[in-house]
Design a protein around this nucleic acid. Structure first.
Lengths: 305, 305
DNA sequence: CTGAAAGCGCTTACAG
DNA sequence: CTGAAAGCGCTTACAG
């Protein structure tokens, strides 16, 4: 008898999780929504989230919005149909409208850096200013005084947050930034390249340029190469994110490392916590830090006004 | 009555897919197993697979082995517990042992480029030789005669397949490659860099180097930079895969584009087909093609033996 | 302590 | 054509 049972188990038996879910009311499935897998910002986040989930016996079902806000709705809907236990929405653009259904159904959600929604929805916050403070300390110490900033598109809140943080930090350091020092790009390589071309035409030319993300910093590097301007001898360059490419280009980029793994871990912990309906987790803010590589150096001596 | 029902539907109702799956015996869930999300080879594949699935109302549950063969077993097991309808195993290393359970349970699987298993398991095959043929035509036309090849580790079958394809094509072109022309790397940037350093020390120094993947080609580029050797003026360089970084480095890499989206689409089609138990899909082999950018040029004139 | 029964929310085959 | 019933495979509360 027992032998038969054992044999059955050893041979074939795998519990049917649909049946169990139906009975128990939990699927042990989390949803993860991101903007775009092809954006090298996300893989590490996905990796960290999925590894953590696997370690807890939780599966991850995963969709992306491709930056289209409307697709977020169908992403969330699909997750709810699958009866995921909780959803991590790691896109930078979010419409509160779409959040109502999961909230109503009691499906915990967590957002990434949605400051305007932080009071009403669980959120993992990253304090960009910390990274910019370290970057400015570094550049000022090297002797830079003329800065340029490659911003992102006006409608992208994460880009605007970064710009605001940079401005605040600059002011605190007594650095004045006229509007002609800030050029917007499209967050991709190409946008960084054209923004850099504009910045290089300014007079006085900035001796240090910060880009809102590494992709644009890579573009900026290309623009400098093309113009015969050496990095870091003629101009220093700092990115943001610390993507794998940041250390693959020449020179390897000094950049501000976005704590993606910590972000994923925190999102996961918040969701787990919400499900266990214990006490709320203590508030926690993540901080990006400067990673110094080879794209920054002291500015070449030259005449100043 | 009808009004009540309608109201209910409009307000809250979302069908419970666990219940439906239990009843119907299908989950409309596919499993996707890859080696490593952080490897930039995979995001585009994931993207294509997931988009296709979403368009068919199928969800994707996704795990990675982190290159550890043993983890493939638990990946497959988890998918089977979730009762996925089918599994795409897109890792380059596979142990047939782990494939028995899904086969026994009648869960269709599809593999990526497992030539040794192609007779017994559905497989998406990529004919590497096509890409190498185009690459060699290009290099020979430019006037190159001394080649170097950065291979991958001996135990990685995909790397060995590429090397074998390259050798076959070289021979067909009457190019002889002594063992000292082939150096192995680790498939990452660092391995490409050190392999290139060795190749640069050879005499006669190769005028053109092909790397088994783009990551190593990027490393090779760095090694050339560090040695003060210009690409493409002093040495031509060709990668493989056409990762996003290939066009971000300077100079942008000439490389062989791996048809990742087509691979994903084909894998998806094979799985769908297996589920519909119609006729088998006609055999199809995918071909990578050369993408010419700026890392290749005619070799500088110099004395030859 | 053990074992049979009820029920989770669907779909579908069947009775009326 | 319509509507009530059975059953998918689990888990758990309950009877013995």
């Amino acid at each position: 008898m027992a032998r038969v049972r054992k044999a059955i188990e050893e041979m074939n038996y795998v519990p049917n999780s649909s049946a169990r879910s139906l009975r128990v009311g939990r699927t042990r499935l989390f949803g993860l929504i991101i903007s775009d897998v092809n954006n090298p910002f996300f893989p590490e986040l996905i990796d960290a989230f999925e590894s953590l989930a696997a370690a807890h016996g939780i599966g991850v079902i995963f969709t992306h919005t491709n930056y289209e806000l409307e697709r977020l709705d169908s992403c969330i809907r699909r997750m709810i149909e699958r009866r995921v236990d909780a959803i991590a929405i790691m896109t930078s653009e979010i419409d509160e409208r779409f959040l109502r259904q999961p909230m109503k159904l009691g499906v915990p959600i967590v957002l990434m850096n949605q400051r305007q929604l932080a009071a009403r929805y669980p959120n993992v916050l990253v304090e960009y200013a910390t990274g910019y403070r370290e970057a400015m300390d570094h550049l000022l110490f090297l002797g830079h005084r003329d800065f340029g900033f490659i911003a992102g598109p006006p409608q992208l809140s994460s880009a605007q947050d970064r710009k605001a943080a940079f401005k605040t930090v600059s002011q605190a350091h007594g650095v004045h930034l006229g509007p002609e020092r800030i050029v917007a790009g499209d967050m991709h390589v190409e946008g960084g390249r054209s923004a850099m071309r504009e910045l290089l035409a300014r007079s006085p030319r900035p001796t240090a340029v910060l880009a809102t993300n590494d992709l644009m910093a890579v573009g900026a590097l290309q623009a400098a190469h093309e113009a015969g301007i050496r990095v870091p001898e003629d101009i220093s360059l700092i990115g943001f994110d610390d993507l794998p490419i940041a250390s693959m280009v020449s020179p390897p980029l000094t950049t501000i490392r976005h704590p993606r793994r910590e972000l994923a871990a925190r999102a996961f912990a918040l969701l787990q916590n919400a499900l266990q309906e214990g006490n709320a987790l203590p508030e926690l803010i993540l901080h990006p830090h400067l990673v110094i590589r080879e794209s920054t150096a002291s500015p070449a001596r030259r005449r100043r006004r």
